[in-house]
Nucleic acid binder design. Structure first.
Length: 499
RNA sequence: GACCGGGUAGCUCAGUGGUAGAGCAGUGCACUUUUAAUGCACGGGCCGCGGGUUCAAUCCCCGCCCCGGUCACCA
């Protein structure tokens, strides 16, 4: 009696026996007065004497994650997914019916218990049960009580099991929920309007990435799952929604890694009459606010490093940092102006042993050098600013330097967390940039930006000076929960189908 | 996509070219304040899938599937 099938049959036999006793194993309602977590929060610090002096009656419920049996008395461990409390099941204290129910309870079943709180000899907060109700059957054998469920494949594919037995998994998603709430609170309080823009788009724009393709049958048109909401949000700013944000999924048809899921959650927000400097300041306020709201802390341990999210964040010019890192690596001076020239930039990349596409321009090469040499060192929050125009087709150029745009990325814990810029609002220049991207695409760059005529038309009506930012919500949650993989902060990460 | 590691009982893991192991979980008995309860007894396996080598494969070889990690691509 112990293959999985046999254990299932044993559990079903217990279910049938309950029904034979006239117990409905799937009752429609159970009126409880407190969840387990609420009980523990409200009474976890009370002594046995307190509980005798002021009796606390309760009706609660949860999944049975432990049964310790002593014949005529037992302990049932109940969990609501966050906290656990035990119930003392004493034969003398229960009706014959309820003790009969208890005897048919299997590990994993959902039960309700009524009784008063006390502390056992070992000082454990316990419900002295006088009523037991059966609420739902667990037909399948549960993971082990001591080691629990650690197999990451099962944890991701059967997240319900992970959440049921691993309170720390639940905690990650509590934090995630609070992060989303805090982001909304932060933006709402600054007069932002939350909006929703298309997830299915005829042109996948707003980022450099390969999209997923889908098809609308009735219209017989191909559509793309969005890679970013950016171009739609800026259309709204044209329309006079001066502060908008959207928190929703983006889809990118690329490799999967500890930092990439094919669908991921992005916050994008746009603020008229502002520039990227304003957004740096705002980001320095937003990140610690969200951290404090969601976790109560603004310092975090990641891989042995203590990361402080307190403002001000470090600032680093991309070209300057790339030149400095290249100089150090090569042991010979490399200047920013050398990195602005395609031929010399390529020579430097070659000496650094960094492979670059022969078609890449100086800006792309410089960015690659930066990502290869500098990114790994950006542990503390750092704004990397002033990107090459070539790699930023939607950003506004610096007035004093057309090869550089007013753009920054925020790195924390070696991860890119946010990307922001002063929005390019000159339709003539925007059309030119799109055309350059089309040329890149013609040369084989599948991630180059597509032309979006309607977006250019929107700019032709006049986009006020605007700054916009995208924040990778999953990565922010990783940081705040010390998660090493993005899959740990996504409830149902993408998995290959298994037969 | 490439490379490395992994897949053995429901769970967590050992292991070996010759009948498959432990702990927990399960079943039975005892036990009315335990908490990884305890004690005794019992059951439980397509060793990821498919080929090959061999008298014999869970183990060696080849292919495939799934998971993880690193790299590549990206946020």
């Amino acid at each position: 009696m112990s293959t999985e099938e046999e254990q299932i049959q044993q559990r079903r036999a217990n279910l049938a026996e309950l029904e034979r006793l006239g117990v409905n194993p799937y009752p429609h309602r159970f009126e409880r007065t407190a969840a387990v977590t609420e009980l523990v929060a409200a009474h976890g610090d009370k002594t046995g004497t307190d509980l005798e002096a002021h009796k606390v009656e309760t009706i609660t419920s949860g999944r049975v994650l432990g049964i310790r049996n002593f014949g005529k008395a037992s302990f049932l461990v109940l969990s609501d997914g966050r906290s656990r409390i035990q119930a003392y099941i004493k034969k003398d204290s229960l009706s014959e019916r309820d003790f009969g129910i208890f005897k048919l309870v299997d590990f994993g079943d959902v039960v309700g218990v009524e009784g008063h709180l006390f502390r056992t000899r070992t000082n454990e907060l316990t419900i002295w049960a006088r009523r037991v109700e059966f609420l739902a059957k667990c037909h399948l054998p549960m993971p082990e009580k001591w080691h629990g469920l650690t197999d990451v494949e099962i944890r991701y594919r059967q997240r319900y099991l992970d959440l049921a037995v691993n309170p720390e998994a639940r905690e990650v998603f509590q934090v995630r929920s609070r992060v989303l709430a805090a982001l909304r609170q932060f933006l709402d309080s600054r007069g932002y309007l939350e909006v929703e823009t298309p997830m299915m788009q005829p042109i996948a724009g707003g980022a450099m990435a390969r999209p997923f393709k889908t098809h609308h049958n009735a219209l017989d048109v191909d559509l793309f799952l969005r890679i970013a909401p950016e171009l739609y949000l800026k259309r709204l700013v044209v329309g006079g929604l001066e502060r908008v944000y959207e928190i929703n999924r983006n889809f990118r048809n690329e490799g999967i890694s500890t930092r990439h899921n094919p669908e991921f959650t992005m916050l994008e927000f746009y603020q008229a009459y502002s520039d990227y400097q304003d957004l740096m300041t705002m980001t320095e306020e937003m990140v610690p606010f969200v951290a404090m709201s969601a976790t109560g802390r603004d310092t975090f341990e990641i891989d042995g490093d203590t990361i402080s999210l307190r403002a001000p964040f470090a600032r680093l010019s991309l070209r300057h940092a790339a030149a400095a890192a290249a100089s150090t690596t090569l042991g010979a001076p490399v200047t920013e102006s050398e990195l602005r020239d395609q031929a010399s930039a390529r020579t430097i990349a070659g000496r650094l042993g960094i492979a670059v596409d022969p078609k890449s321009g100086a800006g792309k090469i410089t960015t690659t050098i930066f990502e290869t040499l500098v990114e790994e060192s950006l542990v503390q929050p750092t704004f990397v600013y002033d990107f090459p125009t070539e790699v930023s087709p939607l950003s506004k150029q610096r007035p004093d330097d057309p090869d550089t745009v007013e753009r920054f990325e925020l790195y924390i814990g070696k991860m890119e967390i946010a990307n922001a810029f002063s929005e390019l609002n000159d339709p003539v220049e925007q059309r030119k940039r799109f055309e350059q991207q089309l040329a890149e695409r013609a040369k084989g760059d599948q991630e180059a930006h597509a032309m979006d005529e309607d977006y250019v038309r929107a700019l032709e009506y006049g986009l006020p000076p605007t700054a916009g930012e995208g924040v990778g919500v999953d990565r922010l949650v990783m940081l705040l929960t010390n998660s090493k993989s993005i899959r740990d902060v996504i409830l149902f990460p993408h998995m290959k189908t298994k037969n």
